[in-house]
Design a protein around this nucleic acid. Structure first.
Lengths: 200, 200
DNA sequence: GTCCGCATGTAAGGCGTTACATGATTAA
DNA sequence: TTAATCATGTAACGCCTTACATGCGGAC
């Protein structure tokens, strides 16, 4: 079940990146290829069609620009409409389904929140996130204890791995809340790449 | 004709399940729909074509059987060739690429190991797994410390979440090794279930 | 003057998703 | 008899993957 905004994980990743500063398709590929961001493919066959889709949707707009060389290339920047869509998407409540099926989307949403919705919204997200996980962990523990005796060790261990992963996420979220509330002004800040012209 | 390493996650899940006991497509759907196994879709549009693919590959064989009702249906059981392919697949070394891009496959492989490769192989897998993760965590930590000052707080926190997830996996693996070595005979036995969940 | 990095794409194929379709059996 | 469950599929679509193709610019 897709969300009504129809943002796939890849589209969200690209839109989030472009929301921070204008980028070319090649820039996006570099981010995916050289940073531990999302484990996305940096293949042109994924990036360029995705960029085109979100451009056709009116969420980004391409304009001429040049990079390190003097060569022309397409610089994409987010449109007001795109920002609205992004904001909308990042503000959606965290559901149990998200936790079960789209954990990576949730983390991506979080990663881009700072610059788009404020500190309060981000904290609320983390609280929702943690409590949804708590609920699901209870379900999993219940299931595990009901079948652990008839379950082979590897299966049980694999399931414990999953549960511990969720618990780790909940703990992380609570630490993150404390940290953000410790210095609330930190929660926004769009890129932090500037402070004296850097990239672009 | 597939290449033997070409087991998609879904094919692996199905082949692993069928290796434990003969199942119909409907049975497979039920497992996906009612247990916290793999966050897979139980949609017929996924299961039946996948079953057909692995049948065409000669890894499973369908025969007539009946379930609770008296109605005929296709019962699939694993073939010697399929078992060989599964064994082969589960015995592959753990690479860093697996850790980065196919963590869920790795966990699925682990979940089915008990009944297919022995305790020693399983322990070796876990050792590889833990040390590959250690290596990657070092890379991630290096990356994080090199950019954390120019990174927005949410991005940094999201990245810490990823790192902690890997660390949790390494710890889990080491605990699992101890447990399996504590009672080695436990390492085999058949059944299902793996990490991450599905609907309650 | 050639090789490498920049920069952007297309084509074919695989496979999962959603939605629809079909028919048998059993419980109410 | 009607509805629910069992059981198996197909069709259209979306999107990622791999692989290929192209052309500019700078460095040596």
């Amino acid at each position: 079940m897709k969300q009504e905004t129809g943002l796939s994980t890849l589209s969200l990743a690209i839109l989030g990146l472009v929301s921070q500063r204008p980028l070319t398709g090649y820039d996006v590929r570099k981010v995916f290829a050289t940073t531990p961001m999302g484990h996305f493919s940096s293949s042109p066959g994924a990036i360029y069609p995705a960029l085109k889709r979100i451009e056709d949707a009116g969420w980004v707009r391409g304009r001429a620009g040049q990079g390190k060389t003097h060569r022309q290339r397409m610089l994409y920047e987010i449109t007001p409409h795109g920002l609205e869509v992004l904001k909308q998407h990042l503000s959606q409540p965290v559901t149990r389904d998200d936790v079960i099926w789209h954990l990576d989307d949730l983390m991506m949403r979080f990663a881009f929140m700072g610059g788009v919705i404020g500190c309060e919204g981000t904290v609320r997200f983390l609280q929702d996130f943690a409590s949804q996980i708590d609920g699901y962990v209870m379900v999993l523990r219940g299931y595990l204890s009901s079948v652990k005796d008839i379950m082979p060790p590897c299966g049980r261990l694999a399931m414990e791995n999953g549960i511990q992963g969720y618990e780790m996420n909940a703990q992380w979220a609570r630490r993150a809340i404390k940290e953000l509330q410790g210095n609330p002004q930190q929660a926004d800040g769009t890129t932090h790449v500037s402070r004296r012209g850097r990239k672009e």
